Simulated scan of single mutants.
Amino acid sequence: MNNPITALVIMGVAGCGKTCVSQALCQLSGATAIEGDTFHPAANIQKMSAGIPLNDDDRAGWLDSLCDELRRVDATGERPVLTCSALKHSYRERLRSALPGLGFVFLELTPEVAADRVSHRPGHFMPSTLIDSQFATLESPVGEPLTLALDASSHSIDELARQAYVWWVAHGLKLAS
């Protein structure tokens, strides 16, 4: 195997289930979850809370922080699983540059399902009015190396985590002995 996957990013638009899938996958694999939303600066959260989409400049420092955290967790010998929308190819490349062997699990769903899920998510800063802007920004990672696409609207969280786990094991996840 040329490029074993040493860490994962669970990616997709708001409402696709990134956090839930990451938590379930970490339970299966013993990996360490990194919640990307917790690295947003206050200005980004205020902007999104006001219904204003983030732009590349808004995301730059956030992505730098995520890269730093991926490297930090990896350096401890743990296997990181990062939740991050990673909507653009350039964002994914930035994350890949931080950690060789970074794989991506793309949780796909329709704008309608995403909007419905986000509208029923209590206490989160991302309003459902931003779903259209997320889909407008999304550059599909399908076909990129070390990327698995999963249908997030027709599988349970546990099934999505199981599929990601099986794929990760097949691509280099070292199981605890």
Results as ranks from 00 to 15, higher is better:
Glu112Asn: 11
Val105Trp: 04
Asp37Met: 03
Ser153Ile: 02
Ser154Glu: 13
Cys26Gly: 09
Ala42Cys: 06
Met1Leu: 13
His124Arg: 11
Thr129His: 07
Gly77Tyr: 11
Asp64Ala: 15
Gly51Met: 09
Asp37Leu: 03
Arg94Asn: 10
Leu87Cys: 03
Ala50Ser: 14
Cys67Ile: 09
Glu159Tyr: 07
Lys174Glu: 15
Ser133Thr: 10
Gly101Asp: 03
Ser49Cys: 03
Asp132Lys: 15
Gly77Val: 11
Ser85Tyr: 00
Arg79Leu: 05
Val81His: 04
Gly12Ile: 00
Leu107Ala: 01
Ala50Ile: 07
Ile34Gln: 02
Thr6Val: 13
Ala98Thr: 06
Asn44Thr: 07
Leu82Asp: 12
Pro80Val: 03
Asp151Ser: 11
Ala164Ile: 00
Arg72Ile: 10
Thr76Gly: 10
Ile10Gln: 01
Ser29Lys: 13
Val113Thr: 13
Leu138Glu: 13
Gln134Cys: 01
Thr83His: 02
Ala31Ile: 08
Pro100Tyr: 09
Leu109Cys: 14
Asp56Trp: 07
Pro4Gln: 10
Ile52Leu: 14
Gly143Thr: 11
Cys84Phe: 11
Ala136Trp: 04
Cys16Glu: 00
Thr32Gly: 04
Pro122Glu: 12
Pro145Cys: 13
Ala86Gly: 01
Ser49Asn: 11
Met11Tyr: 08
Ser65Met: 14
Leu130Phe: 09
Asp116Ser: 14
Asp37Lys: 00
His120Lys: 15
Trp62Ala: 09
Thr137His: 07
Gly123Leu: 08
Glu159Ala: 12
Pro122His: 05
Gly12Ser: 07
Ser90Trp: 07
Leu8Gln: 00
Met1Arg: 11
Asp56Tyr: 07
Gly15Pro: 03
Ala136Val: 07
Ala43Tyr: 10
Ile45Thr: 13
Gln134Asp: 06
Asp58Gln: 02
Ala170Lys: 12
Ser22Trp: 01
Ile34Trp: 08
Ser90Gly: 08
Gly77Pro: 10
Ala86Ser: 06
Asp58Leu: 01
Met48Ser: 06
Trp167Glu: 00
His120Ser: 13
Thr147Ser: 04
Thr83Trp: 02
Gln23Asn: 15
Ile5Asp: 01
Pro80Phe: 04
Trp168Asp: 00
Gly77Ser: 13
Leu160Glu: 03
Phe125Lys: 03
Val73Arg: 00
Val166Ala: 12
Pro111Tyr: 02
Val81Ser: 04
His124Cys: 06
Val142Asp: 12
Ser65Trp: 11
Asp68Val: 03
Gln163Asn: 11
Pro100Lys: 12
Pro80Leu: 04
